[in-house]
Amino acid sequence: MKRLLQGVVTIWFIATSTFVAMHNVPGNPLLDEKAVSPEIRRNLEARYGLDRPVFPDQYLTYMRNILRGDFGISFTQRNRRVNDILREHFPVSAILGILAIVFAGFGGILFGSLTAVYRNRLPDVVIMVLVVVGISVPGFVFAALAQLGIVGLNEVLGWTVLPVAGWGTLRHLIIPSLVLGLGTMAFLTRLMRSSMLDVLGADYIRTARSKGLPPTRIFFRHQLANASLPVLTVLGPAIAAITTGGFVVELIFAIPGLGRYFVEAVQQLDYTVIMGTTVFYGTFLVVMVLVVDLAYALVDPRVRLE
């Protein structure tokens, strides 16, 4: 309950600071209406409520509209409502993000347990070196290099194995989601390795072994299940990282997701789209972190929510 309240306060703060930030930006929505006489301008301002004081009138209107889920109309694409943009492009980002999370999660758990099982032997060393590289190379570099790689691959083979950019088929999804999940996967691998090593020395593993359980059963039921728990805790930050990572990946791979629209809106100062996407993303992230926490408490009965 307390957490819920905190979440609501956070979302309110996000909405308000978005409002304040937008009002600090130079320029105004009627700026590019050509040759407007002062009378028409005043009329227009009155029509859109821009003649009223920013606080509290405009602010209250803004908050009321947000509460009703109405984010207004885009400035640069006049005929589109921000809600339409959200509805149309968020699913694209979501599919990409979910795939990236799945990939990162499975990869992280797989490689992390591999390193723990082959501790200090060749697979461990190789994977850990790759992990350090994965953590150190920025996502946009991976994306660009992956694109170069696809171009090279297609050229060598003489036909389009994987599309270089764009959206539509399953094949368009593979490389972008791999790239998007890579950083998180490296991070998860590292986490998984240390938590596996922790579990390895636990009493219940020794008990299971002395009971004579088969090693595969011990590995999957006892070790893996317990060691995977910490992975859940970082899922919240991971979702945030993948959401923002999506901005870059969508930009580079020309994927019509919300992230790309957000970055473009920011560059073109499309106020309503910035406000709408920021509030939307902010709410989304806050809710996701809350959900992850709840899920964690559900999976691990030792954790009690305060």
């Binding site: 306060v9 703060f13 996000i14 930030a21 600090n24 930006v25 923002t244 100062l269 902010g282 992230l285």
Partner: peptide
């Protein structure tokens, strides 16, 4: 601290940059 941690980091970096002008 709890409050600031809950803010989406990069989103706010971008907002801040815009708002700063």
């Amino acid at each position: 601290t709890d409050f600031v941690v809950a803010l989406p980091f990069l989103l706010f970096m971008i907002l801040f940059k815009i708002g700063f002008g």
